[in-house]
Simulated assay, not measured.
Amino acid sequence: MNHETPLSRRRLRTWLRLLRVTRATENRLREYLRLTHETTLPRFDVMAALYNSEEPMMMSELSKRLLVSNGNASTVVNRLEKDGLVERQAQEKDRRVVKVSLTDAGRATFQAQAVGHEKMVNDIFETLGHEEIDMIRDLLRRAEDRKAQSK
């Protein structure tokens, strides 16, 4: 492809390539989590969000951070709660507001999963060095900033 190809077409092809890389990466991570930890990527993502939060999270905040519906987040949290990995805390002032946090068992489980997850991501992107990673992150930030400006 050269600069004679319209820029809009090149942008479209770049978007499609980003999708392919994302889907392939997610598929490998899903398979790893399923085979090694008998869990799913959505469960891992919920636990990661809770692990990285300094305080218990409201369900609405959790679903917003994960870019999923409240119903999807609730379904995953229900299963994690049943397994003893998360706990819900209803708020005294408004019992409809529920916050979620990891239990001690949930923190330990996530830490074990996160080590292998990081190794898998590292292996997937092993051909990229510091400069390439910085370049990709900078370019994606620019695209993200452009999206924020158009709102």
Rank of each mutant, 00 (worst) to 15 (best):
T25C: 01
E26S: 02
L29E: 14
R30G: 02
R30V: 00
E31M: 06
Y32A: 04
R34N: 08
R34G: 06
T36Q: 12
H37L: 02
E38A: 02
E38T: 15
E38Y: 14
E38V: 15
L41R: 01
P42M: 04
F44S: 00
F44P: 00
F44V: 00
D45P: 04
A48G: 09
A49E: 11
Y51F: 05
N52V: 03
E54H: 11
E54N: 10
E54R: 13
P56T: 09
M57T: 01
M58C: 05
M59Q: 04
M59E: 14
S60Y: 09
S60G: 02
S63H: 01
S63Y: 02
K64D: 09
K64C: 00
R65Y: 03
R65E: 09
R65H: 07
L67A: 12
V68P: 07
S69D: 04
N70I: 03
A73I: 07
S74Q: 09
T75F: 10
V76T: 08
V77P: 04
N78G: 01
R79Y: 10
R79V: 07
L80W: 00
E81M: 10
K82D: 01
K82C: 01
D83Y: 08
V86N: 00
V86C: 07
Q89H: 08
Q89C: 12
A90N: 08
A90C: 06
A90W: 15
Q91N: 04
E92M: 10
R96V: 03
V97Y: 14
T103P: 06
T103K: 13
D104F: 01
A112N: 15
H117K: 14
H117V: 15
M120C: 06
V121G: 03
F125P: 08
L128R: 09
L128I: 05
H130S: 04
E131G: 07
I133A: 03
I133K: 07
D134H: 15
I136N: 12
I136E: 15
R137D: 12
D138G: 13
R141T: 11
R142N: 13
A143H: 10
A143I: 06
R146F: 07
